[in-house]
Simulated assay, not measured.
Amino acid sequence: MSRRPLTVALAAAALTALLTTAPGAQAQPSPEAIVDAFEGVLGPIRSHRPSHAKGTCAAGHFTATPEGARFSVAPVFDGQRVPTVIRFGVGVGNPAGPDTGRTTRSLSIRFETAAGDIWDMANISAPIFGSPTPQVMVDGLLARRRDPATGQPNAERVAAFVAANPATTLQGRWLAASNPPASWASTPYWGVNAFRFRGADGEVRHARWVFEPRAGVQRLTDEQMRTLPANFLADELRRRVGTGPVEFDMVLQFAGPGDDLVNPTVAWPDDRPRATVGRLTVAEVAPGPGGACDPISFLILDQAPGIEFSDDPTLQARAGAYAVSLSRRLQ
């Protein structure tokens, strides 16, 4: 099925209608409400993305393995080389934020086949998401709005929210226990939501994925966190790619009995079946700020019938919010 980009004017409305009528869809805040909640904390966002505001564009290609063709009939897994537009990001709300903080890093990818079939994804350097549902995420942002009298969030309101929603602390605990990546090329990137993969045998399997770095996992030392420049990641990646391609293996993890298919704050056990379904090669990095990834919101998240949404409400809410955010930046 060919999935060419929607215009920004139609994207939010079309995606909202699609997702709120999908089988198993749950009531959730509107895309506008999600973006409004981010702006309630960060202020009006017109020049950058609300999340992972800092980033660098890159390009490369993806080639599926025979296992990829086995587990998905989507065109991106047909074994042909698929060009990719890539964005590496840092989980900060300000494009001037540091590269050394204990936040997530991101790997966003647009795949586009020769026939024009498009598939987007957004992955993070933590195995779990920060909120179990879109409504909880919105409530958490609203709880952190600054008090006009003090210029700071109301501590009692934040504490009450956390006490009522302990799952929102899980990603933060994981990040606190793991030093930040030493390179965008040396960390795994997880797609924390479950998708339905329709295989060549006709079977539908729930799966999540992770992009595992071929260079191995490397993290900053405590000393490096204190001394490295605030903007070291982009230059470090350019140097790496200048000496040879940076590569990641895409690995599917399949759900087992009883695994939670709709809550991205819950990781699946490590003993679940896995399959390497393709390799992503990063062949070039933009020489400076800006590039081909800037106008892309990575909102075409399925490639039916081979890759379809699960009932995870966070996944279902993502595309519409991305479209609204993009439309506001283009105003």
Rank of each mutant, 00 (worst) to 15 (best):
D222T: 14
A159R: 12
V162S: 05
G242N: 04
G244C: 12
W209D: 15
R226F: 00
L175D: 00
A164C: 12
E236F: 02
T168I: 14
F197M: 15
M225R: 15
P188K: 07
R205P: 00
Q171G: 05
G244Q: 11
L233I: 05
A164P: 13
R196D: 11
G172K: 03
G216V: 11
V162E: 13
G199Q: 04
F195W: 13
V246M: 01
A163D: 09
F232T: 06
G244T: 12
S186R: 10
L237P: 02
V241M: 04
T169A: 15
A234N: 12
R205T: 07
A185F: 00
A215R: 00
W174Q: 13
A164L: 10
F161H: 07
A167R: 06
A194W: 01
R198V: 14
A200Q: 13
W190K: 06
E223V: 07
V210C: 07
N179K: 11
H206S: 13
V217Y: 01
T221M: 04
R219P: 09
A185G: 05
F195V: 13
S186Y: 01
E203F: 08
R196P: 04
A185T: 00
L233V: 05
P213N: 10
A167F: 01
V210L: 08
D222S: 10
P188N: 09
T168N: 08
E212N: 04
P188R: 06
A230V: 08
Y189F: 13
F195T: 13
E212S: 06
P180C: 08
W184P: 01
M225H: 03
A176V: 05
N231T: 13
R239I: 05
T227D: 11
A163W: 06
S178W: 07
V192W: 03
D201V: 14
Y189V: 02
V210T: 13
Y189N: 00
G242R: 08
A177K: 10
A163S: 13
V192D: 02
A163E: 11
V192N: 08
W174H: 14
W209M: 15
G202V: 12
E236W: 02
G199R: 03
T227S: 14
V210N: 00
G216K: 05
A182K: 02
F232K: 05
A185P: 01
P166Q: 09
A163Q: 14
G216W: 06
A230R: 10
N165R: 11
G191C: 07
T243W: 00
L220G: 00
E203W: 08
A159V: 07
P166N: 08
G242H: 05
P213M: 03
A215N: 02
A200H: 09
A164N: 14
F195Y: 15
P166M: 06
P213C: 09
F197P: 00
R173A: 14
V217W: 01
L220A: 06
R205D: 02
R240S: 11
E212Q: 09
A159C: 08
Q218F: 02
N193L: 06
Q171F: 04
F195C: 11
R239H: 09
